[in-house]
Simulated scan of single mutants.
Amino acid sequence: MVFTVRVSVAVPAAAPGGAGDLVTAEAVALDLRPARLGSRAVALLIDILVQAAIGGCLMLLAGVTVAILPERVVDDALVGTVWRVLIVLVLLAYPTIVETRTNGRSPGKAAMGLRVIREDGGPIRVRHAFTRALVGFTVEWPGLLLPFVTWAGSLTTMIASGRGRRLGDLAAGTLVVHERRPAPSRFVPGMPADLQAWAATADLSAIDDELAGAVRQYLSRAPELREPHFGTLQRMLAAEVEARVSPPPPAGTPPWLVLSAVLAERRRRYAAQLAAGRLVTERVLPGFGRRPLHPPIPAVRRASPLR
């Protein structure tokens, strides 16, 4: 079936054992791009600014509340307890709640297109977010235990990790990945000159979109494939295409030339049909579907004279 062919094309292109390969509980390999030090540092800076703003507002509110309390109630112990509670809320409770509620996307990570996920590719839970925040609070940032030493250790761990994981990620079993992955531009061969006359007269109506998509995927990723996958997939696709094309291609034509010719001719016919449809639409409904360069200015009614 065509579906089987499409799955087979995608498997060899993945790099086994790569830094971005994750295997889910269903044994499905995910090709993800781990976030590195640069993007995570910018995201951390944004999160620090947000936390500083929230902490400033809470401290202002706490200061006003303490100021209006009776003097016999306020003492050094109360003030110290309030400040400690605020620090825990801002540096521990806030990141835990935000990463849990937003599915691993704090304001800084959302701005940089990052997300925290589990090692198996699933969404994080409260325990993962709390572990990350707790390790960051005590070791990494701000790091209550030997700040400068732990900062250097965390930075070294992130640089040395193949997936850019910090100490909090190692403790929680998580990692940070890019949500927005740039789509690589792939080259698809054009029409072979020797097969142009045959393709122009061939009946391609039996080749559906699914089979054409499988051929396009194979041709665009052929340089990444290795034997025996390269030859096996080429023969399977060529056999199915030739069985649906009439008349058959010239004898002795290499399979990859047949695939390229069929795909290019199908694309040419689709473009011709689209252009013809646009001409008919323009003839029947001139200007339909086009936005004017200068939208008309609504007429202004003259105000009636005052009486």
Rank of each mutant, 00 (worst) to 15 (best):
A160S: 10
R163E: 06
R216P: 00
T138M: 08
L30H: 11
T201Q: 15
R84Q: 13
R244Y: 11
V82A: 05
L293N: 12
V5S: 07
L219P: 01
T24W: 05
R268Q: 10
R267D: 11
V284Y: 05
R302E: 09
L211D: 00
P192T: 06
I97D: 00
D203M: 06
L114W: 06
R235P: 03
E140I: 05
Q234F: 14
R105C: 09
E224G: 07
D31W: 09
L204D: 03
M236L: 15
E179F: 11
L285A: 03
P296I: 10
L60C: 09
G108I: 00
I207M: 15
S220W: 04
R181T: 07
W151P: 01
S8L: 10
P184R: 08
R221N: 14
L45Q: 05
A10H: 12
A35V: 01
I297P: 03
L92I: 00
V245C: 12
S246H: 15
N103T: 11
A15G: 08
P12N: 07
P70V: 14
E210V: 14
L44V: 03
S161C: 02
A67T: 05
A172I: 02
A25P: 02
L285N: 00
A133T: 03
A199F: 02
L233I: 12
R186E: 05
V135M: 10
V284C: 00
H128A: 13
L155F: 14
E119I: 07
G168M: 02
D21N: 07
A243F: 11
V241H: 11
G80L: 02
I97K: 09
R84Y: 12
T65N: 05
W141F: 15
A27Q: 09
V258I: 14
G213P: 01
G55H: 00
D169L: 08
A152I: 15
L144N: 01
M59G: 13
M1N: 06
A264C: 09
V5P: 01
P248K: 13
P249G: 15
L144Y: 06
A197Q: 14
G122F: 04
E227A: 14
R180H: 10
R235K: 15
V74C: 05
A52V: 05
L92A: 01
V188A: 09
V28S: 09
R301P: 08
R125E: 09
I54A: 11
P189A: 14
A222S: 12
R244E: 03
Q217N: 09
P182I: 03
G136K: 07
R180I: 07
V245N: 11
V88G: 01
T281P: 00
V11T: 07
S304K: 13
E119S: 13
A52M: 02
G63S: 12
A152T: 15
L259V: 03
R266G: 13
T131N: 06
G113I: 05
R125N: 12
A303M: 03
L237W: 08
W151M: 12
S205G: 08
R302K: 12
V42E: 02
I297H: 13
R290T: 08
V66E: 02
V300C: 06
V2F: 07
L293K: 14
R302C: 04
